[in-house]
């Protein structure tokens, strides 16, 4: 029951460490932490403040402290400009849909695979595991071209009947990113910390393996689920290169491609800042709202790595 012991210890440690670190509760300690806040926060503050300034002022302020102050002619013009230029709600809807579906499918597909690899015994298990771990390191960018060529040959069946080629669809923005070696790896590691005695007891009770996965292992894996969800969501939300290549219809484009809408012959930097703020803030808000659960979840799954 190692995991339980570890968990109990974990629960107490925050307190204990807190007591130990009372020396750090000095002015110096705060100063250091606040300086670090500036380091990490200022660029984003610059983005948000610039989104309220006219283009010329953004560039006039760069290089002085004014860049980080809400001074000058503040206006919402950039935001109205964004809505004139980009079908924002459509893009937002697309990105939410693409990200949420990628996350949902990814959780199911990868956790099932990890369960099979980690908890079931069959021939070829190690080979499959080795292949998965080997693909962990392949960056998507270098596969984009062959993948583009290949998805254009894939069949699809939908309401309009049978078709060949996936370009310009939602699925081409989702399905390639569902199965993920890193997610499988995280689930695999996490499942490993769940005592096998639980499974064995269930087997004695006559439960099937899938039922064990569904009713015992997954319910204990909240942290891993949250971690994988987050790590799948961020790249899905931020995807840029791939949609450029595979989407031709405006009504299927995700938010990140929208940035290019502002890079006309006269680049509207104020509007870019506004748009960047608009597509970043929802993610930040989501993060701030769930930050405790979020960090704790990474914390408790990461440790198993």
């Amino acid at each position: 029951m190692t995991a339980h012991v570890a968990e109990n210890i974990g629960r107490h440690s925050a307190l204990a460490v807190g007591r130990r670190a009372s020396a750090g509760r000095t002015v110096g300690g705060y100063a250091l932490r606040i300086v670090l806040c500036l380091v990490f926060g200022l660029p984003l503050l610059f983005m948000i403040l610039s989104s309220f300034k006219p283009d010329l002022e953004i560039f006039a302020d760069v290089g002085s402290v004014r860049a980080f102050l809400p001074v000058g002619h503040l206006t919402l013009d950039n935001y109205t400009g964004v809505f004139d230029r980009v079908p924002f709600w459509q893009f937002l809807f697309n990105s939410v849909l693409i990200s949420v579906v990628t996350v949902a499918l990814g959780l199911v597909v990868n956790s099932m695979a990890a369960y099979a690899l980690g908890r079931l015994r069959f021939r070829g298990r190690k080979v499959i595991l080795a292949v998965i771990l080997a693909t962990l390191i392949v960056p998507f960018e270098v596969l984009a071209l062959p993948l583009l060529w290949w998805v254009n040959k894939l069949p699809w069946l939908d309401a309009n009947g049978f078709s060949l080629g996936w370009l310009d669809t939602y699925q081409v923005q989702i399905l390639p990113f569902v199965a993920n070696a890193f997610s499988i790896f995280l689930f695999y590691q996490y499942f490993d910390s769940i005592p096998k005695e639980l499974d064995e007891a269930a087997v004695v009770d006559g439960a099937g393996f899938f039922r064990i996965y569904r009713t015992i292992v997954m319910p204990l894996s909240g942290p891993a689920i949250a971690t994988v969800a987050i790590l799948t969501f961020l790249p899905a939300w931020n995807s840029y290169l791939w949609p450029l290549m595979v989407v031709q219809s405006e009504n299927l484009r995700p938010v990140m491609v929208g940035i290019d809408y502002f890079k006309q012959l006269n680049v509207s930097w104020g509007q870019i800042m506004a748009y960047a703020t608009m597509i970043t803030v929802p993610v930040l808000a989501l993060f701030i709202a769930f930050q405790r659960a979020f960090i704790n979840s990474i914390a408790s799954s990461g440790v198993k790595g």
Partner: peptide
């Protein structure tokens, strides 16, 4: 996460 698993 690692720090928090070290026994106080």
């Amino acid at each position: 996460s690692g720090l928090q698993t070290i026994s106080p």
